[in-house]
Computed example of a mutant assay.
Amino acid sequence: MSIDFDLADGIATITINRPERMNAMDAEHYRGLSEAWRRVRDDNEIRVAIVTGAGEKSFSAGADIKSFLTAPTGLDEMWLTQKDQLLNRGLEVWKPVIAAVNGYCLAGGMTLLMATDIRIAAPHATFNIAEVKRGIVPGNGGTQRILEQLPYPIAMEMLLTGDAIDAATAAQHGLINKIVPMDELMATARAYAKRIAANAPLAVQAAKELAVRARDMDRNTGFRVEALVNRLLQCTEDAREGPKAFAEKRPPQFKGA
Results as ranks from 00 to 15, higher is better:
76 D>P: 04
56 E>S: 09
78 M>E: 10
72 P>C: 07
63 A>Y: 06
38 R>H: 07
50 I>C: 05
60 S>M: 00
68 F>Y: 06
87 L>Q: 05
57 K>V: 00
52 T>A: 13
61 A>H: 09
88 N>W: 06
88 N>E: 08
83 K>D: 11
87 L>S: 08
65 I>W: 07
56 E>T: 09
59 F>K: 10
42 D>R: 13
74 G>F: 03
68 F>W: 12
65 I>C: 01
46 I>N: 05
80 L>K: 15
47 R>C: 02
57 K>G: 01
40 V>G: 11
77 E>R: 03
70 T>Y: 07
67 S>M: 06
77 E>D: 07
66 K>V: 00
57 K>Y: 03
75 L>T: 15
83 K>I: 01
41 R>K: 15
89 R>I: 06
80 L>C: 13
40 V>W: 05
85 Q>Y: 04
72 P>T: 02
54 A>D: 09
58 S>F: 04
84 D>M: 13
70 T>D: 03
69 L>W: 02
89 R>S: 12
74 G>H: 00
63 A>S: 02
87 L>W: 07
76 D>K: 06
80 L>G: 03
67 S>I: 02
59 F>Y: 15
59 F>Q: 11
58 S>W: 06
58 S>C: 12
40 V>H: 08
88 N>V: 06
72 P>D: 01
79 W>A: 10
87 L>P: 12
51 V>P: 11
60 S>Q: 09
85 Q>K: 14
53 G>I: 05
78 M>S: 15
46 I>Y: 10
67 S>F: 03
89 R>C: 13
83 K>H: 14
41 R>C: 08
89 R>V: 00
86 L>F: 01
82 Q>T: 14
50 I>P: 03
45 E>T: 14
41 R>F: 14
81 T>Q: 09
72 P>R: 09
60 S>C: 08
85 Q>W: 02
75 L>D: 06
61 A>E: 01
70 T>L: 09
84 D>G: 04
83 K>P: 01
48 V>Y: 05
59 F>M: 10
53 G>Q: 08
79 W>I: 11
39 R>D: 10
73 T>N: 09
48 V>P: 10
85 Q>S: 03
83 K>L: 14
80 L>W: 09
63 A>V: 07
71 A>F: 03
78 M>F: 12
64 D>W: 12
45 E>G: 15
40 V>I: 15
67 S>T: 15
82 Q>S: 15
84 D>F: 07
89 R>M: 00
